[in-house]
Structures are given as structure tokens and as C-alpha cells.
Amino acid sequence: MHRAILPISDQIGLENPIISYNGGMVKHPRTGEVIYHTPIQAADATALVEYGDQKGLHLNFCLNDQLFIKEYNQWSELYEKRTGVSATALGNLHELDGQEPTKMQILDTPEKIDLLLTECKTEFGERLYVTRTQVEYIEFMNPQVSKGRALQALADQLGIPNNRIVTFGDGYNDESMMEIAGFSVAMGNSVDQIKAIADYTTDTNQNDGVALAVEHLLL
């Protein structure tokens, strides 16, 4: 979520637009200007809420950079701990029918997510972008959304050619942005698929991998 990135952005003094929601939004942290936003269509969001209710699943509903859930539980606690974003429990997510969220998520055990991922891609894959970003997360976005599309939109607005773009990634959802960049860096903790397409592999995120790559490649 955009709001989850702001504490880090503020800490390091960024004055540049932020790509968030797996590429679903590009927004400026200072002015609040939304440069790019491609939400889930309302009918698809309602269908996903219905699916979650039928399966008894925990759903995150990200709307207007706010997080809504049905009820507080271990999964809302996990997400809040990881992101610093507090959720609002509605008791019934169908209260949001007709709204267009930027992103929705299912959270469950890694074993359950393994089973659900294929089912979700079969059920929703023709109308939503379905991806796994953490072992406990399945994320759903508009099918036009990717980090690569958002990065391209931002680069075009700023007048930066692709061969002057450097990307850092570690997960499956980073592949699209790494493919359009002039140079791509995989973190040491990356999945093998990302390491295979990267131009360079640095240390892990826990060991200052980005800083080490910047020092080695740019400075």
C-alpha cells in the first residue's frame, strides 16, 4: 500500500513518485498527486468477496489507501505487524459492494495458499491479475496492472529512457519491471526465477544488498 511506504519514504527524504500496490498505483508522497491508478472493477471485487465468504477466508480490501477486513484475526495481526497499516473491521465486506479497490488479498497458511493459488487462477485468472507475493499471500489486481506497466508510465512521464532504468527485485511480481529495465539487480534472497533474469545479484535485503549494489555499480 502507498501509505505503508510513506514512513520509509519520509525517513530517507524521497521527493519522487512511489509505485505501490504491485504497480496498481503511482502517487507522489508530498503532493498526493495520483499519476497512475488502475483499480479492480466493482463486479470482480464483489465476486471475490463472495468467494472468500464461501471458503471462510481472510480477505484484505484496499480502497482509497485504506485497509478493510471482515474481522480481526491472526492474519490481520500479521499484516499489520509487517506493514504498520491498521485495518478497519466491517463485519461484512459486502458493505463495500460497488466500490473499486486498488488491490485485494487472501491471507492463509503457506500450505493452504499452495492449494488456493491454482484454484484462484482458474476462478479469477481471466478477469484479474492473480499473483503470490508472500508465502501467506495471494494478491488480486486489475489484469492491466503490473510493476512493469507502472514503471513504464512513470518513466514516460519523467522522460527517462528504459536503458537508464535500474531495478531491484526479489519476488515473482518483480519480473515485469526487471524485463523493461536497462539493468536489473536481484537481491540475494530472491526467488530463483528472478535471479535467472537479472543482470546482477547482490546481497540479501537483510545485509544491505541495495546499498552494496549501488556502491559497486554506480559509485
Results as ranks from 00 to 15, higher is better:
Leu14Ile: 15
Leu217Pro: 09
Val166Met: 15
Ala150Asn: 05
Thr46Arg: 05
Gly182His: 10
Ile106Ala: 00
Asn73Gly: 15
Leu6Tyr: 14
His28Pro: 00
Thr102Ser: 14
Gly52Leu: 07
Met187Gln: 01
Leu78Thr: 02
Phe68Asp: 02
Asp114Arg: 13
Lys81Arg: 14
Lys195Ile: 12
Tyr129Asp: 06
Tyr172Pro: 06
Gln144Asp: 13
Glu15Tyr: 08
Gly148Ile: 05
Leu90Ile: 04
Gly84Asn: 11
Asp156Arg: 12
Lys112Gln: 08
Ala198Ile: 02
Lys70Ala: 05
Ile106Gly: 00
Tyr172Lys: 10
His37Arg: 13
Val26Lys: 00
Phe168Glu: 03
Lys27Ile: 15
Ala181Gln: 06
Lys147Met: 09
Val210Tyr: 12
Asn207Met: 08
Asn163Val: 11
Asp97Leu: 08
Ile194Tyr: 06
Glu71Ile: 07
Gly32Ser: 11
Ala47Phe: 08
Ser190Phe: 12
Ala211Leu: 11
Leu219Arg: 07
Lys195Glu: 13
His37Gly: 07
Asp44Ala: 13
His37Ala: 13
Gly52Tyr: 10
Asn92Ala: 05
Glu123Lys: 09
Leu48Glu: 08
Leu212Glu: 09
Leu67Cys: 07
Gln99Thr: 14
Ile69Phe: 04
Leu128Asn: 01
Val130Gly: 00
Ile8Ser: 09
Asn142Gln: 10
Thr118Asp: 13
Gln105Thr: 04
Thr131Gln: 03
Leu59Thr: 00
Ala186Pro: 06
Leu63Gly: 06
Phe140Lys: 01
Gln99Lys: 12
Gly23Pro: 06
Ile180Thr: 00
Thr204Trp: 11
Asp53His: 07
Thr167Glu: 02
Gln41Cys: 08
Asp10His: 14
Lys112Pro: 02
Pro101Arg: 02
Thr202Trp: 02
Asp10Gly: 12
Gln157Lys: 15
Glu139Ser: 04
Ile138Trp: 01
Tyr21His: 03
Leu14Thr: 13
Asp156Ile: 07
Thr204Pro: 09
Leu218Arg: 07
Met178Pro: 00
Val85Lys: 02
Ile8Cys: 03
Thr118Trp: 02
Arg149Phe: 06
Ser184Cys: 11
Val145Glu: 04
Leu107Lys: 02
Phe61Pro: 01
Leu93Gly: 02
Tyr200Pro: 02
Glu126Ser: 15
Asp108Asn: 10
Gly98His: 08
Met104Leu: 13
Asp192Cys: 05
Ser9Pro: 04
Gly182Val: 10
Ile113Pro: 03
Phe140Trp: 03
Leu90Phe: 10
Glu215Val: 05
